[in-house]
Design a protein around this nucleic acid. Structure first.
Length: 488
RNA sequence: GAGCCAUUAGCUCAGUUGGAAGAGCACCUGACUUUUAAUCAGGGUGUCCCAGGUUCGAGCCCUGGAUGGCUCACCA
């Protein structure tokens, strides 16, 4: 026997792989005929005790006792113990078993029983190696803690950290419930382009790409809004799109360059209707998945039970930033107040932008919520309808949960002339150097000129909602493969 | 982009004042037919993130860099 390469479990396993092949075992096998999963065996033990079962899983632990051995096999939903004896499986197969490593995937067949200590176990009559693992698993007791490796090599995280599997299973259920909630209410799920010639629907910097044969630059979408509204123009009265959007901006515990949003549009509706949808959808998802509308996030309680309070943005600023903008009615005095509070302004900054800046900088994080903050300044809401009795503000709201903005919605702006002016305002900001300002979308204006019914629209940040429901502190904990810099 | 922190064995981590690189699990050798963080006997398997520097001597001190985390900035 060749001496082991010192210190290298990878090479040790490669040697075993070669030995297995020499001995005629196939280290990468065909599918195994299974009858049960680990969970089914554990759940139906009363019924299955004494009868034969077949299942497969990854070898996670083993306790060898000479001519017998205990081990745990893990499949998608759990682990179950197996018991092997040489006099049962045969000398040859037991020899194979002794060459197995933790991490290998095997299929087993045997009878269900309970050990002296009371653990449901399968007494193996035969087994088959399905997949040889060449790399060792992280430690069985502490799991994989290295955050960087958990993100970069999520497959290891999923193998050894049940909590991680729970988070992503729950994420999937949240999205499923969202779909059910909307389709049950007559919303039509649609798919609109991911590659845009004009990146619109939000104030954000887009990713730019290039189409060879068309010889044009294309943008990855920063929102689904403008295409969905075109569909409302076209006559679809209730639509939604659940999908990935991309923003070429900073990365933080609340921002990933690609993330998932759901946007919902309903004809002949307004932002009050969108508030109802938001609070009903979020609370019903929590109730269905977590069993309660009162959840815990990072050690604090968050009561999602509807109705959620509604507060005017200007009142929120008055309350939390202690500035009463109802008494400050022109740009000049607003800029003066901003300067007094250390909020940066330029000569052209307007009262509305300053009110919004006060809100973002001094109020948002204090909003544990849930709360709907409503009626935003028109300058920062270029796609929202103006309030009937105050054209400086719009019928827009954002929903805050645990200090995070999770929804943004408005009564949509359907007046094509006003929309054109708003775009022109954005374009002039863009020319002045604001590369996050909106671009002119002429076709969208044309669509509005054909006539869009009064419409309510809503966008929800799915990742942030999943963070709340899974009690995850970072958005990277709820995205399977978060954006990372290459290591080398 | 800035500040702070982290990076040591496959994994989780210790490493004192600058003086011969450690533990547990994993792994390797052997024993063991109901164990379960199995046990028992033996074995340390390492680019101390990278590159320089100071020093008789650097995991430790200094400079620069990489990646990650947190905070801030940025950002619907």
């Amino acid at each position: 026997m060749v001496a082991e390469q010192a210190g290298d479990q990878f090479h040790s396993r490669q040697n075993k792989l070669a030995e297995l092949r020499e001995d005629g075992w196939a280290p990468y096998g065909d599918k195994y005929r299974v009858t049960h999963s680990s969970r089914q065996i554990l759940n139906d033990f009363e019924m299955l005790e004494g009868s034969g079962v077949s299942f497969f899983g990854r070898l996670m632990t083993r306790r060898d006792h000479g001519k017998a051995s205990f081990a745990h096999l893990q499949d998608e939903n759990g682990q179950i113990q197996i018991y092997l004896r040489e006099d049962r499986v045969g000398h040859n197969e037991y020899g194979l078993y002794q060459k197995l490593d933790i991490g290998d995937i095997i299929g087993v067949t045997g009878e269900v029983f309970k050990t002296r200590k009371g653990e449901i176990t399968v007494n193996v009559s035969s087994f088959k190696l399905l997949t040889k693992a060449l790399r060792p698993l992280p430690e069985k007791w502490h799991g994989l803690k290295d955050i960087e490796m958990r993100y970069r090599q999520r497959y290891i995280d999923l193998m050894v950290n049940p909590e991680s599997r729970r988070v992503f299973t729950l994420r999937s259920k949240v999205i499923q419930k969202m779909r059910d909630f909307l389709t049950d209410r007559g919303f039509l799920e649609v798919e609109t382009p991911v590659m845009h010639t004009v990146a619109g629907g939000a104030t954000a910097r887009p990713f730019v790409t290039y189409h060879n044969t068309l010889d044009i630059e294309l943008y990855l979408r920063i929102a689904t809004e403008l295409h969905l509204k075109r569909l409302v123009v076209g006559g679809f009265e209730k639509v939604f799109e659940l999908g990935r959007i991309f923003r070429n901006e900073g990365i933080s515990t609340n921002h990933n360059p690609e993330f998932t949003s759901v946007e919902i549009y309903q004809a002949n509706a307004d932002y009050e209707d969108m508030m109802s949808i938001t609070e009903e959808m979020v609370s019903s998802i929590a109730r269905d998945i977590l069993g309660s509308t009162i959840i815990n996030y990072q050690g604090k309680e968050l009561d999602l039970t509807p109705p959620w309070p509604r507060k005017y943005l200007i009142d929120t600023v008055k309350e939390l930033a202690l500035v009463d903008f109802s008494q400050i009615n022109d740009d000049v005095s607003a800029r003066q107040v901003a300067a007094e509070h250390g909020i940066e302004v330029e000569k052209t900054t307007t009262r509305g932008e300053i009110i919004f800046a006060f809100f973002e900088e001094m109020c948002e994080k204090k909003l544990w919520g849930p709360v709907f903050v409503k009626d935003y300044p028109v300058e920062v809401s270029p796609l929202a309808r103006r309030c009937t009795h105050n054209p400086d503000f719009t019928n827009r709201f954002e929903a805050f949960l645990a200090g995070k903005e999770i929804a943004n919605a408005f009564t949509e702006l359907i007046d094509p002339l006003d929309q054109r002016e708003r775009f022109e305002q954005q374009v002039s900001q863009r020319l002045a150097g604001d590369d996050e300002a909106h671009m002119m979308d002429k076709d969208f204006i044309t669509a509005l000129e054909y006539g869009m019914p009064p419409t309510g629209g809503l966008g929800i940040g799915v990742d942030r909602l999943v963070m709340l429901l899974t009690d995850s502190p970072s958005i990277r904990d709820v995205i399977l493969f978060p954006t990372m810099k290459p290591k080398e």
